[in-house]
Nucleic acid binder design. Sequence first.
RNA 1: GGCGAGUUGGCGGAGUGGUUACGCAGCGGAUUGCAAAUCCGUGUACAGGAGUUCGAUUCUCCUACUCGCCUCCA
Length: 509
Amino acid sequence: MTKIRLHNSRTRKREDFTPLDPENVRMYVCGPTVYDRAHLGNARPVVVFDVLYRLLRHVYGADHVTYVRNFTDVDDKINARAASMQADGDTRPLNAIVQALTDETIAWYHADMDALGALRPTHEPRATQFITQMIAMIEGLIAKGHAYEVSGHVLFDVRSYPDYGRLSGRSVDDMIAGARVEVAPYKRDPMDFVLWKPSDAALPGWDSPWGRGRPGWHIECSAMSHELLGASFDIHGGGIDLQFPHHENEIAQSCCAFPDAGFARYWLHNEMVQVEGKKMSKSLGNFFTVRDLLDQGIPGEVIRYVVLMTHYRSPMDWTAAKAEEAAQTLFKWRKLTEGVVPANVAQESVLDEIAGDLNTPGALAALHKLETQPRALLFNARLLGLLNDGQGAWYSRRKLFYAANDTLKILLQKRRIAKEEKNFARADWIRDALKKRGISITDMPDGKVKPQTSFDFADAYFDKIEQSERKEVFGDLYKSDGSIDASALVDRYISLVASELLDELERIE
RNA sequence: GGCGAGUUGGCGGAGUGGUUACGCAGCGGAUUGCAAAUCCGUGUACAGGAGUUCGAUUCUCCUACUCGCCUCCA
């Protein structure tokens, strides 16, 4: 059996992975708070843990892996968004807006992550469906002396859990010393965090022993993972930014509620996403969603490849140049594997890289070496979620435009044949039709034909094409600085014109 | 201020105590109406300093720089 090795952030070491139960390997990954389109940073853990999910399914069998990724659909950010929609004229009650907003966002999320070729997890619980379990868990924590109620809030008492801070490697005292902690007057300790807080009549809320209220963020994941995976399970994943405080708090809650279970055994954290070398942020204006990229004509598969180009524990930089390199490689691979039946065994070179702490760049390198074996290439690329059926529409479109490159040659050949057959009307039609589109052809003394045009015609043609389609038609011509090579553009223009004329010629005949 | 990660050839990006990463770009060649595509070949690297070692890009320490987290955040 393939030996899986994973970097466990809990121990800061690479460890052999041994599941609690090989018949049911269990993984929990923190999902999105649903109030807006998923951005690239949201997409990274989805892809990273999808690779791990696929690996586990490959090694232990597809029916022996349970993968849970939640939707946080109760949260102050959601309430704030709903309130601002109300302020913008939405007349529905706040609760109705929240419901509609979270439903819609989840549908978007599914569509966008599907486009990235990510498998749907086994369970995708919504936090609001597990309020009962959260309340039960909070009651248990109060009963055990790990939480206390004060002015309608229930707070976790961090001092009651000596290991608090272990995952993120900080002591409670250190945290207080350097942090800008919001110290609510009712907290026993500044680091105590909310398990339950009161909701006024307008906000979403549920009845509880502490009055009508809503859960704190951290308790959601503890309750859902417990309900769906049990008190102890194998892997817990998420972005490195969640390590503190979210995961720290999850551990505190779960380990205090179920002291003997041990909670999650392997903790995996992916690093953050940057854009053109800078942190992605709304203020820098380099903030974009997965949908933005898809709308620009960048296929989901290409986005996925770019994510896989960087090891998950390194910061990943999104650049246009990388996207084009990814598209180029995937185009080549799709061409090589077109119509090919995939092999049925994984290549050791690829599998070992994935199993070695998800070294996806290494796996991609191994795939390059399989280019001479299309069947193996196809099978192994699919281990990474690439080259799947149903994700190749972009390939077919791009291929059409590449194929257009041969068209001028064919068109001029038809003219030559027409001349040989003394069909001068047809030969002249070709020449004049080209001329009308700004392409003049000259018969050289040696019998060769030289097409000529000016950049203006190509440029005008380019302008005429809708922004959204340009990436498809000219995407491969972009240079890394975002400009297009002028002579390449002219060549492409000639090819496209020739292609159109060939079609027309066929219709005439 | 506290904690942590990183610095590899033109670019991206793995990895290793001694042997070609890999891809893109470049260069040379084959093929070619010009290109594209394809194929073959090829150069360049391990931030700086000190130490450990027969030998360090790989281990240790120091310096410089970059980045992240500590506040909602994937």
